[in-house]
Write a protein that binds this DNA or RNA. Structure first.
Lengths: 125, 125
DNA sequence: TAAGTGTATTGGGATAATTAATACACTTAT
DNA sequence: ATAAGTGTATTAATTATCCCAATACACTTA
């Protein structure tokens, strides 16, 4: 399903989160499909089950997965995780705007830059 | 020059950075004035000189101070640190914009939000 | 040359983060 | 009902990181 990079010095769970998030966001996993169990994915990657559990918990917090106790964890419907993702991105963006405002940057400058960035390319992912 | 708050559980050097940054940004220290030496400020606050050194290094990285080896460290000209601060804020903001774009948020939405935020108040700090 | 400046290096101690070990609770199929 | 499969909670061990101190070095100037 995914492959770990041993040269990567980030914690394992974080790597798993990133890879799965990318996989889901790119449509590589159909909504509502069952994820591999905590134990089986742990076996497959040769890591402790708790590490996978932590990754799943994070992905659930971010809206990409949901879990039914005793049954397993599943991929969220696309509309749901898109909404969650947008909400987070918007909140972070707003924070950056306030910082920019405090630094004395004008609304006009930001509006220009905004247009310029959006003009560059159509959203890759 | 500044006063440490012992109830504050952040590291000392961080507290020093924040207090000095605030002092400089608010005009409490004239540009080009010489800062107290690493050792003297350390003595005054009863901390290790390395702690002050770390704070000064951070402030230099942020553009508030500059240092001449053997002579001392000095307050940057206002135009310079304002520029530095704006550059950093702008860069972070651009990053947030790209994230928002990737998440599928429209330029129009961001432009609206931008206007709304700027309309709220005239920049406090 | 001596005193004052910032800087680099190293290490100790504490704290936090990451992963592991184990036991528990729930669901489902046999 | 029992066993096997699922996620979860708790606790511990290990590892990494952070903060601060001690000390020595390099540079400038009186």
């Amino acid at each position: 399903m995914i492959l770990l990079d041993y040269r990567d010095k980030r914690p394992i769970y974080e790597q798993v989160v990133e890879k799965l998030e990318r996989l889901i966001a790119s449509g590589g996993l159909e909504p509502l499909t069952k994820m591999p169990s905590v134990r089986s994915l742990a076996m497959e990657l040769s890591v402790n089950p708790n590490t996978i559990q932590r990754a799943y918990a994070q992905l659930e917090k971010d809206g990409y997965l949901y879990t039914v106790s005793g049954r397993g964890t599943f991929v969220t419907a696309e509309s749901d995780w898109r909404e969650s993702r947008q909400g987070k991105a918007l909140e972070q963006w707003r924070h950056a705007v306030r910082k920019a405002q405090e630094a004395g940057l004008s609304e006009e400058l930001l509006r220009e830059q905004l247009h310029q960035i959006y003009a560059q390319e159509e959203v890759p992912t």
